[in-house]
C-alpha cells in the first residue's frame, strides 16, 4: 500500500506569534519555522506502517515556499521514501491545498492519505476533510489509533464525549490527533541519507489548480488583552476575594 503524507511548514510550536503593527498579518520574518506538529505525527504513523509491513511506500508532499524543502527533508529523514514540493510563495487556502492534493492523489494512486488535523498557524482544520470530499473518499478525522483491518481501515477518533471508532473502506483519508504516536527524532545518518532521496519540485499550475484566495483579510489584530491580576497570600484570602470581590462563588 502506498501512503501519501502532506506536511506544512509553519511557525515553530514554541514561538509566540506577533501581529505586525500595520495589522496585515503575523510577523514571520526571522522567526523559527518547523514542520506542523500534527504533520510530524502523520509522517511518524506512515513510517511505522512501512516498518510494520502495512505500507510499502511513503510519499511526503508539501505546498509552500522553496524553504518547505526543509520540512520535506525532515520527513525523508524520518523515513519517507520520496517527496514532492508544490512550490508557491502565495498564501494557499485549505480548499486550494485540497484541490492540489486531489490532483497528486490521482497521479500517485495512494490507498491512504494521512495528514495533520490542523495547522497551528491558521487553525482551520479543513484540508483532510475537503480532500476526502473532493475524492469521494471516507474519512477518519482526529485519529488516536489507526489499524489496517483487511480491506478496511479502522480509525479511533477523539471526539467531544470520548472516543469513537469508525471503519473506512480504503482508499481513505485519516487526520491525526495528538495522541496517535510520538514522532521520532531523525538520526544523523538518516538526515544524511535523506539528502539523497528524490524530491520533485512542481508548481500549482502543473496541476491546473487556481489558488486565488476566496477569503480576503481585512485585518489581523492583537487579541483582547487580559491583564494579570493580583497575587493572594493565602487560600482564605483567595476564597474571600472570589466571594466578595469577583462574585463568582
Amino acid at each position: 500500500m502506498k501512503v501519501l503524507v502532506p506536511v506544512k511548514r509553519v511557525i515553530d510550536y514554541n514561538v509566540k506569534a506577533r501581529v505586525k503593527p500595520d495589522q496585515t498579518g503575523v510577523d514571520l520574518a526571522n522567526v523559527k519555522m518547523s514542520m506542523n506538529p500534527f504533520c510530524e505525527i502523520a509522517v511518524e504513523e506512515a513510517v511505522r506502517m512501512k516498518e510494520n509491513g502495512v505500507a510499502d511506500e511513503v510519499v511526503a508532499v508539501s505546498i509552500g515556499p522553496e524553504k518547505a524543502q526543509e520540512q520535506l527533508r525532515q520527513a525523508l529523514a524520518m523515513g519517507a521514501d520520496r517527496a514532492i514540493l508544490v512550490k508557491t510563495d502565495a498564501p494557499v487556502e485549505p480548499l486550494a491545498v485540497a484541490k492540489i492534493l486531489k490532483a497528486i492523489v490521482e497521479q500517485e494512486g495512494p490507498e491512504l492519505v494521512i495528514l495533520g488535523k490542523q495547522a497551528i498557524d491558521d487553525d482551520s482544520n479543513q484540508t483532510g476533510q475537503m480532500l476526502a470530499a473532493l475524492l469521494g473518499w471516507p474519512q477518519g478525522t482526529f485519529a488516536s489509533k489507526v489499524e489496517k483491518d483487511g480491506a478496511a481501515v479502522k480509525v479511533t477518533r477523539e471526539i467531544d464525549g470520548g472516543l469513537q471508532t469508525v471503519a473506512l473502506e480504503a482508499p481513505a483519508v485519516v487526520t491525526t490527533d495528538l495522541r496517535l504516536n510520538e514522532p521520532r527524532y531523525a538520526s544523523l545518518p538518516n538526515i544524511m541519507k535523506a539528502k539523497k532521496k528524490p524530491l520533485d519540485v512542481k508548481e500549482p499550475g502543473d496541476f491546473g489548480v487556481d489558488i486565488t484566495p476566496r477569503l480576503s483579510v481585512v485585518k489581523v489584530a492583537e487579541p483582547p488583552k487580559r491583564e494579570a491580576g493580583v497575587k493572594v497570600e493565602s487560600v482564605a484570602e483567595l476564597v474571600s476575594k472570589l466571594k466578595s470581590e469577583a462574585g463568582v462563588l
Binding site: 511557525i11 509566540k16 506569534a17 506577533r18 501581529v19 503575523v26 497551528i120 498557524d121 491558521d122 487553525d123 476566496r214 477569503l215 480576503s216 483579510v217 481585512v218 485585518k219 489581523v220 489584530a221 492583537e222 487579541p223
Partner: peptide, 13 residues
C-alpha cells in the same frame, strides 16, 4: 488564528 494569539477579520467572496 495562531492559538488565539491573533484575531483575523476576513471577508468571503
Amino acid at each position: 488564528i495562531y492559538a488565539g494569539n491573533a484575531f483575523m477579520t476576513v471577508t468571503s467572496s
